[in-house]
Design a protein around this nucleic acid. Sequence first.
DNA 1: ACCGTAACACTAACGGTTAGTGTTTTGAAA
DNA 2: TTTCAAAACACTAACCGTTAGTGTTACGGT
Lengths: 211, 211
Amino acid sequence: MTVPTGRRERKKAATRRKIADTALRLFLERGYGSVGIRDVAAEADVAVTTLFSHFASKEALVFEQDENFEHRLAQAVTDRAPREPLVRALRREIQAMVRHCASDSAAPVWRMIDESPALRQYEESMRLRHADSLTTAIAADLGLSPATTACRTIARFVIDSHALAREAADPEAAVDEIFRMIEAAWEVAFPSRRARGAVPPGSTGQRPAGP
Amino acid sequence: MTVPTGRRERKKAATRRKIADTALRLFLERGYGSVGIRDVAAEADVAVTTLFSHFASKEALVFEQDENFEHRLAQAVTDRAPREPLVRALRREIQAMVRHCASDSAAPVWRMIDESPALRQYEESMRLRHADSLTTAIAADLGLSPATTACRTIARFVIDSHALAREAADPEAAVDEIFRMIEAAWEVAFPSRRARGAVPPGSTGQRPAGP
DNA sequence: ACCGTAACACTAACGGTTAGTGTTTTGAAA
DNA sequence: TTTCAAAACACTAACCGTTAGTGTTACGGT
């Protein structure tokens, strides 16, 4: 079990990328529903079982880069400038993501997603993971347990903002508008010293994080 | 196409209920994943195609009453007492729903849902419909277009509160806490006359009652 | 009494997914 | 280098949810 940075890994990554690229190309050419897993496997010149050893499901072929998404949000929290408000850092990141979704390169993919119920459903279930991941990052930043209701709520609202903004007529303006609402929610949950509130922090489930 | 309140409808409803009851019983007895559609159909003494003419999917067997859920939220908006704040009516309804989820009769079902990824995913996709439906009700109440970002955002937050509270240690307290955040978001999106002027954050909670 | 229709049944299949089994490739230890 | 365990890959065959196609009843309205 040493560090495996050899040819094997490169080959594996190459196979994975070939499958994903082939799938996306076929999906965009013929439509997601009209392309079967067996078609993708044949075109990528791999066995069906090999395809499923790289991707957990057909939908996962489309959201290949979603781990990236998940990771960027957590990083936006942990890697932000010292003293920068947490919510502001998240707004910037969501803003960038929404902008990218509307870019020419990504737009056809998102149109395909919007047209497929199966893909929309999968996207929604990804949000659960994203929200959980973001909850962990936020809770860690605040020194609270990830079970804290307020942390989970803010995380969920932030994830929602991406979905809501993507469907809005003016996505970037929507992000700003939604984040004004999120910041208000944040202030209620975690009153800052600056904003006079003298309201004790959330009355439920608040526990300092363990070691 | 007259009012069809005859035997046919009763028979149909009976078949539907028999299928749903049988399914739920088998799922709880043997586990959701260990019971196949063919098992349910055989036990309910109907053909598989008949089962699918009553329910769109296997998961829909578990969430049989979800139309009820969707309808109740919209009703909470439209049927509330005159002048009652919209958000407060929604909080009451969500509170009641969450309480019901924790009741002895419903608890085993929700435990089953929590343990099945397929069911959790389906539940999450239901929320899209619920949020859309609630968006329509809220927008109508405010005389706005359902496309308004703030309406869609509030609706989504309210739907989230149900999911978040259900997973919290103290669900009812969680609903209160989340709705304090939602009300703050609401005030930012739709500033009320009463709340004009310098109002310190945190004072827009559900407490300043008064009819 | 009749007819249109909605419910139901049955057979086959489709498409995503997995189990089981065996083969090749690869990284590193001997 | 040789050897070896693990990992990737392939293949067959199936499982399971779901649907199409085709009838067959049973009901309700006329």
